[in-house]
Design a protein around this nucleic acid. Structure first.
Lengths: 205, 205
DNA sequence: GTCTATATTCAGATAGAC
DNA sequence: GTCTATCTGAATATAGAC
């Protein structure tokens, strides 16, 4: 933050290391020693920059949670037609998750394990923006008889389920199908189009 | 196991308690003291019945993993037509998960966090049975021109994504939609039919 | 089989020199 | 800001009496 050195600051090194360790092990499984080692500093420094483990975790968690829903609000405001908005959401969402494939499981898991984290406020801020707009857009498309009647919540669940779940279930998928990382990546690449068309196919009149 | 008393055996009490604690906290977050308290015994007993925390966890994990895919093999062997098989899988899968809503996240998360657990063998046993049969059934339906061409793996992913993901994302869904547990349950009840029809709608010719 | 008490290890956090 | 050394508490595990 406000440090004097110009080389990759210690705080930054800590954050990079903490990201890795927390994502790999979760809050409960992460070890401060492990974070210190990866940052190539000592434990004392961690507590100098961040009061305690929970504080450090909170920073990382908020950072990750913030990446869960990217620029969707802008997208909803664009003048794309409804179907192209679906295509665009699916495609860019899968793309974003492919960059950080561990985010969905990490966020969902820690939300479950640590329900009393200051996350509610965090998301309630972005909620109206994008979810409501998507909801409205769906309801409008139903009224315009563009798509078949469907509860918007269900449709939204379907969209994000098919995008995010494969990343959460990756180890299981690899086990059951025998595919390797490369093929998995290829499949997700295919899904950018496949999932969108699957959805549109289902709801279009 | 092979104990002499007839009342709810100590081992059983341990397993019940361990289930609760491991599911709530995960392997890393669970405390043996916590399990002992809930089982209303002392810590020493835990180590008498199970060598260590990992052993106890392994028992619970395998138990949970075993519940992930229920009687699907039988279902695939039935003489239902393809669409009714889809309906049946979706409906009974959601029903099963509703009984134990925490299972998908628990299993997926621990598979990620502890990749080197003896789970591979476990699932490789059931894999051929049900996944392959579903795959074959999809390929056959494509050949028969009953459904539109689709990579079976993608379709299978879609099915299980839409069934399981809402349970994994429940805290997030509650946050974004403002719904409560009762409504959530109702929605999942609706999804038994909705998801199946959503899928069939998309793939049928 | 069950308990109390204790050993042991580990991890988070702090004190204090530089 | 950075380090070494240390404290403290927690958590797993064991010893041994009953």
């Amino acid at each position: 933050m406000r440090d004097k050195r110009n080389d990759s600051s210690t705080e930054e090194k800590i954050l990079i290391a903490a990201r890795l360790v927390f994502i790999e092990k979760g809050l409960a499984g992460a070890r401060m020693q492990d974070i210190a080692d990866r940052a190539e500093i000592n434990k004392a420094m961690l507590h100098y920059y961040f009061k305690n483990k929970e504080m450090l975790f909170e920073v990382i968690f908020r950072e990750m949670a913030g990446k869960l829903f990217p620029h969707f609000e802008r997208l909803m405001d664009s003048d794309l037609n409804f179907f192209d908005k679906i295509r665009s959401i699916v495609s860019s969402y899968i793309e974003v998750i492919m960059q950080n494939p561990y985010i969905p499981l990490f966020v969902m898991n820690e939300m479950n394990k640590n329900p009393e984290m200051g996350i509610k406020n965090f998301f309630e801020a972005q909620k109206p923006g994008f979810v409501r707009k998507l909801r409205d857009s769906i309801e409008e498309s139903v009224k315009e008889d563009l798509i078949q009647p469907i509860n918007p919540i269900h449709l939204i669940m379907n969209i994000f389920s098919m995008c995010a779940f494969p990343f959460i279930a990756k180890p299981m998928i690899k086990l059951l199908t025998g595919i390797e990382d490369d093929d998995f990546k290829n499949m997700m690449e295919q899904r950018k189009i496949l999932v969108a068309e699957f959805i549109i196919n289902s709801i279009r009149k």
